[in-house]
Design a protein around this nucleic acid. Structure first.
Lengths: 334, 334
DNA sequence: CTGAAAGCGCTTACAG
DNA sequence: CTGAAAGCGCTTACAG
């Protein structure tokens, strides 16, 4: 038994297939009696119009592609959950579907995305700070609407949604300085992330604003993993670096940092305060609970999707960006 | 500038469009010189075959649909991350795409999925224990391949992947009994989940096996949320229920339980031991770290996808099921 | 080894 | 208010 097509319905109802199509779409008025016949035929055959065929005819898929982290790094990334949740909430409201693409590796182990104008999507959200650059020019020439989740390196003429990462770290450091800290370590993300540079800028500015000298040796870059945070902190302690507070790239790195401190019986926050970014449930569950900057990741996702839909429908044409606010949440770790 | 189509390439290369198609697919031998011309034309026009048109012509989308939790409940669900990671790993290997569908609510606030044979997918993974039933019969008559992630209530003739939840709880309770506990509370998931019934069975069997009397009043059902775990535990303590150990549905519920205990200065594990299921990073980060049953959620996802692809390609026709093993991981909370 | 044509299942401009 | 036909951009059986 094959799936019924629009032709089967047309034959059964004794009308043309355009009429079937118009009854479904409501794009032109159809007589009451005809409508009734068509509806009955659809019911009888349990007919549902093929999404695929409709997409091809309309040249529209009502689907957007999310280009996110690799399958591997997605495993323990709660920040991603919030973003995904925000995106889905927005799309569900508008009847759009989501094609979820994770970063892949080619034969040379180079990361890439399956992302070009041949994909069955109306637009893309790119959330990988390593890969967005590569696709920006390509997508522009291919006229595929897209939004970057994060600030692109040269934000010339693209749509993007991000936090003000510089201001976030500025706020964090400022808070610590006002609490009396003067030797603050900074465990930043990979050097290649634009957001790492943004954060570093905030770190420097906060010191300048308070006229506090900054110790370059206390600034570190590492992969965004618990274990990396642990190692960096552990090595710093081993070397005898002096600091009374540490700001981390995100919650999971902070977990590693706190572990390294606790293993050496360095009390948090009594001896060293720890401040993270993200406000995932990790920061509430960890002991001590963590002071963190809530980046409103749900909003980041929601706004990206919302913006992308506006770009697709040409309600927005000139590139623009949306900066999602953050809030400092103080808990036990500072 | 419109996207180039196969006709543009054919014209430029001076051959028929079937030849273009065959050069790309390699489904029939094409002369060297012709191949070279075609490749050059494709290159010059930056041609990529439309995925949509190909899908319609082949009646195959190389896409599977994942029908998962609602956007809301996905927010703090790390178990989902593992499953998703497993699914993506498998699909990436096979060149399949993932359409991610979350549970939606209709106007009457009734949950539903956008899931029928008209969707642009070759098959579906259904991971919602509340909704799978509803779609099983429908999908069967519509000949849409699907795999249930979890054990369906009447597992008559469907493909499914699950843990042995009964054995998992049996193992957990057995371990606690051997540690000397005799009054064990059980905070189970919603009564409507098949997996809750499976777990309860394990809880009862473990008691029977050791000839230990079971106190029905110590068995609870609640939504799978931190706060619900907290409330159930708090009310039990308030009532003066006596127990020295509690087994929970998952890690996040255990967090609530431990919080309720700690607030009343009841030491974990000294006074009350806590054992959860899931082994997400929560159980490692929580203080005390949690003894938990690792359900191998990544494998759950990977195997579901693998099985679905086999069903789609008709390498499997008769319904079957895959039971993913679990391991007890002991940490500080017991 | 290559081409002309039918077909996948829809939508929509054209015509009445 | 309704229909016949062209078209979306491919694949593939048919033919040579």
């Amino acid at each position: 038994m094959k799936r019924p097509t629009i032709n089967d319905v047309a034959k059964l109802a004794g009308v043309s297939k355009s009429t079937i199509s118009y009854v479904i779409s409501g794009k032109r008025p159809i007589g009451e009696d005809v409508t009734a016949k068509v509806l009955a035929a659809m019911e009888e055959l349990n007919y549902k119009p093929s999404v695929l065929a409709r997409n091809l005819a309309e040249r529209k898929t009502y689907t957007i592609g999310l280009y996110g982290p690799s399958a591997e790094s997605l495993k323990e990334d709660l920040f991603f959950n919030f973003i995904l949740s925000g995106i889905l909430s927005c799309l569900n409201k508008s009847g759009y579907r989501l094609l979820l693409n994770s970063e892949k590796k080619d034969d040379n182990n180079k990361p890439y995305y399956e992302l070009d104008s041949a994909q069955p999507i109306d637009g893309a959200i790119i959330m990988n700070p390593q890969l967005d650059e590569e696709y920006v020019e390509k997508l522009k020439t291919e006229q595929m609407p897209f939004v970057i989740l994060g600030r692109p390196a040269q934000n010339s003429d693209v749509f993007f949604v991000d936090n003000d990462n510089t201001a976030a770290v500025y706020t964090a450091v400022n808070y610590l300085i006002e609490k009396g800290h003067s030797k603050i370590a900074f465990i930043n993300g990979p050097y290649s992330y634009v957001s790492s540079a943004d954060r570093e800028k905030g770190f420097r500015l906060a010191h300048e604003a308070k006229g506090l000298e900054l110790n370059e040796a206390l600034m570190f870059n590492c992969e965004v993993l618990e274990d990396e945070g642990y190692k960096v902190c552990d090595r710093a302690l081993e070397r005898g670096d002096k600091f009374t507070a540490v700001v981390t790239f995100n919650d999971i790195v902070a977990v590693g940092v706190i572990k390294a401190l606790q293993e050496r019986k360095i009390k948090v926050p009594d001896k060293v305060a720890v401040l993270s970014e993200g406000d995932t449930l990790i920061s509430r569950i960890n002991s001590p609970t963590m002071t963190t900057i809530d980046m409103n990741a749900y909003d980041l996702g929601y706004k990206s999707a919302e913006l992308l839909l506006e770009v697709i429908s040409r309600k927005r044409i000139n590139s623009c960006n949306i900066i999602v606010p953050f809030n400092l949440i103080t808990r036990e770790s500072t």
